[in-house]
Every structure is written in C-alpha cells, then in structure tokens.
Design a protein around this nucleic acid. Structure first.
Lengths: 214, 214, 214, 214
DNA sequence: CATGAATGAGAGTTCATTCAT
DNA sequence: GATGAATGAACTCTCATTCAT
C-alpha cells in the first residue's frame, strides 16, 4: 500500500503557546464530536472548525494537515490507554499473581468499556491513517508494563516471561473485544471479569515456577 | 453517527448474465488489488474500473454504488471465513475435546494467517461501511458452529454451553489477533498453535463435567 | 441560444414497416408514461425502452436520437390538437357566429381539459427541444382554420379578418390557460365555457358588419 | 411525477457577507447569460461559474444545488413581474374603469415585451423545476392586486368580483402570449394595446353595475 | 432484425487548502 | 493571529449511443 502519499506525512505540531491551549482543546473535542456524530467520511476540516467555534484558517495554524489532526486525536486516545495500563501494572508490583490479574483485568475492562463509541470511531481513524507504527509502539508499552509487573510477582517465576506476557495479554483482550464488538448484554458484562480472572490466573499459574526462595 | 445517508444503501445487483460473469470477477479482483496497492482512501471507482480493464459505466452496471462494491467484497471475505470455521467444526463432531480444540485452532490460525494483507485492508472497509450488522451475523454463525460442535463432545458436558463457547472463541482469537496486528516473528507463529491448544483445552476441561454415561 | 448543437438535429424516421408499427406504438406510449411518471429529467432512453418492453437497440432503430423520439411525441400531440380544431371549425362552416363560437369554445375546453397532465409534461419537452418552429406551424394551422370558418359566417363580415381571428383565439385561450395553470376548481370549470362564449361573441359581434345581402 | 428526488429541495442561502455580494451578483448575471446563450440543457454549474469569473466551489458556497440557483433566478424574475403589476394596480385605485384598464394593459404589455428572451428562457426553467407552487403564489399576488383595484372603481360595482377579475386577467393575457409566442410583427404590437383595452373594457362594463350613489 | 453489455464524456458536488483582508 | 471567501482537483454517478453477438 502506498504510504508515501502525503508530503510531510504526519508532521504535526504541538500547541505552541500556552494561552492558545483552549483553542487546541476545542478543536480536539470538536473532532471527536464530529467523528461520533457524523462518522469519519463526513468529518471535514470545515465541520470540525465550525463545531470548535473557530475558523478553518485557525484550525490549520495548529494542524497543518487534516491527517495531523486525526493523528493527534488518535494519539491522545492511545496514550491514555497505555497510561492506564502502566499505572495499574505499577500499582501491583511485588504483589501475588492473583492480585495482579484481578487488578489488570479490572483496568482493561474499565478502559475498553467506558468510551466504547469513541474507541470504535477511532478505530476507523486508525485504519485509514497509516498509524500502524504508532499503535505498535503503544502495544509495546503495554506489553513492557505487564512483563515488568509479572517479573516482580511475589509467588512466581517464569522461564519465558515474554511469551507468557504475550499470551496473558491475548487471552485477556480476546473475550473483551469479542464482547464489545457484539451488542454486549448486561449479564455477560457482569460475568466477564470473573471469567477472565479465572482463565488468566489458571494460565499464569500453569506456566509459573515457584519463586526463588529468599 | 449518521447512517441513513445513503438512499438504497447496499442495494447491489448480482451478475445477470452468465457471459458477463467474467466482467464481474474482474471488477472484484481489481477492487482487492486496488485496496492492497493503494489503500482505501485512494480506492476510487475509476481506479477500480481501470485496473479491471472496463469502463466506469460498466462497473456501475453491476455495483450501482461504490459502497455496494465494497460491501460485496467484504461479504465474500467474511463468508469464506465463516464457511471454513463451519467446515472445521462439522468435521470433528462427536470427537473428544482435545481433538476438537486442535482442529479448530489450526483452522483459525490458517484463515487468519493466509490472507493477512487482504484481511487488514478489509478491516478498514468494514470500519467505513456500516457493516456491523453483517459482521455480527458472521460472528453468530461462527459461534453457533462452535457451540454445536462442543455439544457433541464425546468426553464432556457443559452447564452453560453458551458462555463456554464465548470464552473459548475469545481466548483463541485474542492471541491470534495480537500476534497478527504486530509484526509476527516466525518463532511466535510456530509456537502459537500449541500454546493456544493448551489454554483452550485447559479452560474447556475446567468447565466440563463428565459426560452422561451411556 | 445555440440551436446548431445536434448534428442531424431532428432527423426522425417514420416507422418503416407496417408490421413493426406495434413496436413504435409501444415506444410512443412508454415515452409518455415515463414522462408522466418520472418527469423529463429522468426520461432516459433505457427507461423508455424498458417500459416499452424492447431493448435500447431496438428503440434506436426507430428513433436514432433521443430528441427525435421526444420530437415525435410532441408532434403527435400537437397534430391531434390541430386536427380537433380543424374538424370543429369545418363542422360549422356557414353557421351563425353564435353557433361558431359555442362549438369552437367547447372544442378548445375539451382538448385542453382532457389530457391535462400530458399537456403539461409535453410543455417541458417543447421548452427543451427547439420546437418553436413546429409549434408555430400548428398555431398557424389553427389560425387558418378559425379564419376560414369566420369568413363563412352567415350573419357577419369582417374588415380585418386576420386581426379579428387573432383576438378571438387569444381571448378564448387566455382564460383557459389561466385556469388550467392553477388548480382549477370544479365551479370555475363549469362556469368557464359560458363566460368564454360570452366574451368571444361580444367581441366578434362588435367587430362584425352586416353580411352582404344575397 | 417524482418530485421528492432532491433532499433539501430548494434550500438556498442568501449572500452572507456584504463584501461578497458582488460574487453573488456575478453568478446571477452569469446564469441568465448562459441560459440565453446556450439554453437550459447546456446550462451547467461549471459554465455558469466560468462566465461569472469564479470557481465552481464558490458558486456552491452560495447555491448549494444547481436547482437552488435556477430557482433563485426564476424567483427574482417572477417577483419583478408581480411588483410591476401591483404598482400599476395601486396607482389607479379609485379611478374609473377606462383608466384602470388602460394602465394595466400598458403595464402588462410592457413587462412581457421588454425581457422577451429572458422570459422565454425562464419558462423552460419553470417547466423543469418543480416551481408550480411558487408560480401560483405569484399569480395569486397578481390576481389579488387586480381585484383590489377593481373594487375601488369609481364608476362600477361587481357582483362576483373574483370571477370578473379572473376573466379580465385571462382576456388580457391571452392575446399577449399568443403574440409573443409567435414572431410578433411590429404592426400587431402597435395595434395590440388598443384592442386589448377595447375587449377588456367592453367585458368589464358589461359585467358592471352602476356604483352605489354617494 | 433484436439484444443489452460496454463505453466514456461530462454532469453535479465536495473538501483540503490557501491567502488577502 | 484570526478569518472565511475562494480555489480547483478529484470524486461519484448518469446516460446517450454503439456494436458484437
């Protein structure tokens, strides 16, 4: 697929002046609102500017290309997700596996659940932009956070932590996505965390070796 | 999100005459090629027609709207996936759990692996089209096939087959997607099936009750 | 306005073979039906052919250009109108003015009333085609018929028959059109003929001189 | 006939900024020029924009649909006609019938004569657009103006003013149209007003009753 | 003769982007 | 800096017309 199309690709600028932060925020919010209200194909710079209450010209002062704007929105979303995971992982360092799994599962279900519509909309954005690279970066951050966490488990050691982490993440995320992509029933949403904790813990304990004494 | 935009939505026509089947096929192939070579945003009816070696007018005789064309392509892809799963599930009816899991996991990894580029491209298509409904239909077909299979297991009975099936599917699909969304290393691809069989089987056995005697 | 646009302008052909007259008639009817059902902008050769139950190719054998088809339809309509007027005028030769006016008014109201929708639709056709010339021919036929009639009036002679005829026609047609262009009320339609006879007769008698004795 | 085709039908915007009024005017003028020079079928948005010296995009900023543009042009024309009639009718309130008829006939001949080409072109526009409703509005304005005028006649009262007004308008307009639709000879154009005054006045006097004394 | 698949110019319309004010 | 009128390339879609079968 052609990826060299855009000259200056994702050349995005950060808000330069602190006092114009409000404008940037407004544009940001407007973008997501338009995305949710109209869908990606109808998301135009003019529409975003209108909803943000600024002129197109102004918008272009901060995001010199439409893609830059979209990329920025996507980026913020992904960063928040990564941050949440990292925080959760950090908060249970040194705990036992059970504790870890419970915390992480809760955090994941939480993020995925709360901004469902936004996530879906941004999914289309990620598919259209050539954002694979950035998405991979985020995934790697998540993976690293989980692995670092697992390595501090009070009650287990792993021979191949990388693989264990990978499977852990996969097993946890699979059912969540499956559920969210459908029309999640309340019952299933209620049952899910418990079941997830169950599988993940089972898997981790199966792969775990007793911790080194001392 | 506005979804009522298109009057006559996905009103697509089937090829009417046998002799013009070639044209339809050419358009189909061209669509996928353009999708892969240029990406969705650059997929225009003119480009597809050009690559198919027909005129735009001809293209519109078969797919009276661009969306209809994309939808048809997406549909064929999803149908093939569903068919593969159904076939696999049918082929192991009455077998033991271990056999079932091994067959299904192999089939899944197979489908997801072989047309990776096409799948990714169609993902963007699915995101842009309002194809959720159809995707759900396919998911349901898959779920039904798996559940029907599990119900015939020679060595197990389940109290809540629906939930078990759901978790089974989720657990299996999670790591596959996780791997494919990254840049799958050969080693991981090799390890994956075995690991998947491991987790899935563990989970199913955990939830299983001994089969009714006789 | 450019009128030289079409090479071969209104080069229309008459049905060549008696046995294919049915086809021509079908096309004819179909044209009017499409015109009424869809409007001129949506009248396409394919749609007409479909409704006529023939293929486009066949249609083009009889009307080698879309305009030719439209022109033919318009022509037939106008010819019928002219014929009706001529017949009416002929039938009262030698009668008294009162008789003449009554007959002609009745005939006019009749033609204009009966195919109102068709007339309106053909109006758009006439406006789009460059049919002024032909319309003028028809008007002249009507005028000639009326004038010839008036010249045989048993109870009147006119100094300037041409002008009298012109005013007679104008006076009669004005209110009719005015009524039909609006949403004619039943009451008005009932009153109209009587009133028209009234004005026209009054005018003609005012302009008339006693007939030459003998 | 399908009239529901256009979503947002004649949704047209008025020029928003004073400084861009020039642009709107240019587009307006260009539309009429193209209409006269090329005819309705060749009137395309691109051609109008070109002649107006603006880009298509600009044109669409003011008239978001081609029909909106045409409708606006038609509207202005009709409004002018109605205004002229109303002014004439107002100016002779309270006068005698003869005076009224002379004034109105003069006004009508005047309007119809001066922009003959424009009127003809707009006729085609009216036929293609679904403008019947608006045309009826204008007709009603004219009718109301005439009726109001007649009711103030110094030397006459009418039993059924509505019908009288209707016939008056019809009688007057019939010969005018008849003449203009042909190739009006200078002689006829000269004679016309006098003849019209004659018929109309005759008719009105015939229907009139003496005014109430005092 | 009839068919209808194929053509392709050209229509209406949108929208990212620029730049004079 | 902010504005929004102006741009014009590019897109989707239509339809009169042709011609191999």
């Amino acid at each position: 697929m052609r990826t060299d199309t855009t000259p200056g690709l994702d050349a995005r600028k950060q808000p330069r002046q602190a006092r114009s932060q409000a404008t940037v925020d407004a544009i940001f919010e407007a973008t997501i609102q338009v995305l949710l209200a109209e869908g990606l194909p109808r998301l135009t710079t003019i529409r975003v500017a209108e909803r943000a209450g600024v002129s197109v010209g102004t918008l272009y002062q901060y995001y010199p290309q439409k893609q830059a704007l979209l990329f920025a929105v996507l980026q913020r979303h992904l960063d928040r997700v990564a941050k949440t995971v990292e925080d959760a992982a950090l908060s249970v360092r040194g705990a036992c596996l059970a504790q870890m799994v419970r915390t992480i599962v809760t955090a994941f279900v939480q993020i995925k659940t709360e901004n469902l519509a936004e996530s879906r909309a941004l999914f289309a954005v990620a598919a259209e932009l050539d954002s694979r690279e950035y998405v991979l970066t985020i995934k790697e951050r998540n993976r690293a956070a989980l692995q670092a966490m697992l390595e501090t488990a009070a009650d287990a050691r792993f021979d191949d932590v990388a693989t264990v982490t990978f499977m852990f993440a996969g097993i946890m995320i699979g059912p969540i996505h499956l559920l969210l992509e459908g029309n999640p029933s309340a019952r299933m949403l209620r049952l899910l965390p418990e079941q997830l904790v169950s599988v993940c813990l089972a898997w981790l304990e199966r792969e775990a070796r007793p911790p080194l004494p001392g």
